[in-house]
Amino acid sequence: MRALTWQGRENVSVEEVPDPRVEQPTDAVVRVTSTAVCGSDLHLYGVLGMFLDAGDVLGHEAMGIVEEVGDATGDLQVGDRVVVPFTISCGRCWMCWRGLQSQCETTQVRSQDKGAALFGYTRLYGQVPGGQAQYLRVPQAHYGPVKVPDDGTPDERYLYLSDVLPTAWQGVRYADVPDGGSVVVLGLGPVGQMAARVARYQGAEVVVGVDPVPERRAMAERHGVTTLEPGRSLATAVRDLTAGRGPDSVIDAVGMEAHGSPVAELAQKGVGLLPDAVAAPLTERAATDRLAALHTAFDLVRRGGTVSISGVYGGALDPVPMMQLFDKQVALRMGQANVRRWTDDLLPLVQDSSDPLGVLDLRTHRVPLDRAPEAYSMFQRKDDGCIKVVLDPWDRPG
């Protein structure tokens, strides 16, 4: 089959790789009909290469048609149309029963002291081949795949259940925005876009999105979000919108590669040029992230408010302003999305013909899988108004 593989820093290519097969009774094989590029994929593309091997198949947002099932996949059947959550969880363990599927004790990568295995996401998370491919082996298929109607509707109506929507939904839930309250979303990439829409849907009165890219701000504004550019006047503008005290909640949807952190950016790039045997322990034990967005969140949030972190961070020695957080009595929530905890809530919303979360207004580019390297570069540079890329693993009719 054809699949997108990591070959080196900022170097990915589409190659022929072996077709996946059922290896365990709880496995299924899915023929991928749509797969998306995520902001977290850019961390692998530019920063976390020391945890990848040449030839690793990337991608963790995929959906398609079940082609083969093992003997213990429950009611999953060949021919089912499914979305595949990016976290691999069993649904039966202590963590899964408590809605912490991203900490699943069956798939935890204990050798790396990490949580549940993830598709297409480095040795740290199990080195499971990803979904930017024509076929995908799905472990724990008795629980993970979400069945969706095979009714001719576009894949994009359901595709974002794999990651973007549950991550945004959890980010807003963790933000604890009061009814009629206020929230600032930092970063209007795919997760930030959906977090802003979810916050409005769940009853926030003031929703502000912050991003330097005009096309991203324009998309958010189409969905009733007030937008601002980052800069020196940001705090004043936000206070003016929130009765002078700051927002009840701030959602950091940026993560480790925030703009405005030039020293940390140079350090990240420098470590990325080192041999893996040196770079990996440095990253795990001595790395710092670009923290401009996170520090902005701490500055903006009102006293007694909540900061919810959806953006991925990987630094072991990130400096945190504890005096400021303690003095302002800030609550922090964060973590990998517990996808299957939220999909039952989200499925009726994405099926709704009125599209209350605007899922059909997120994808800006759809390209063949063979153009994935070009898409990665475009997404990283934010060229051509690129906000969300969906890849076609197979030739589309017409």
Rank of each mutant, 00 (worst) to 15 (best):
E16I: 07
V47H: 07
S13V: 06
C38G: 12
S40Y: 10
T33R: 12
D71P: 00
G55D: 09
V32Y: 03
G55A: 11
V17W: 07
G8K: 06
W6G: 00
V30C: 02
L76W: 03
M63K: 02
V69P: 00
L48P: 02
A54M: 10
H60L: 04
A28L: 08
T35M: 02
G39K: 09
G55T: 13
G70E: 08
Q24L: 06
E10N: 14
D27K: 01
A62Y: 03
V17A: 14
M63T: 04
L52H: 06
V69T: 13
V29M: 09
T35N: 06
E67D: 15
P18D: 13
D75T: 15
E61V: 11
V37W: 02
D71L: 05
M63G: 09
E23C: 13
G46Q: 15
V57S: 01
V14I: 04
A36V: 02
S40P: 11
V14Y: 07
P18E: 14
A62I: 08
M63P: 00
C38H: 09
H60T: 05
V14W: 08
V30R: 01
E68D: 13
G70I: 04
D71V: 05
D27H: 11
D56K: 01
M50K: 12
L48K: 11
G49K: 04
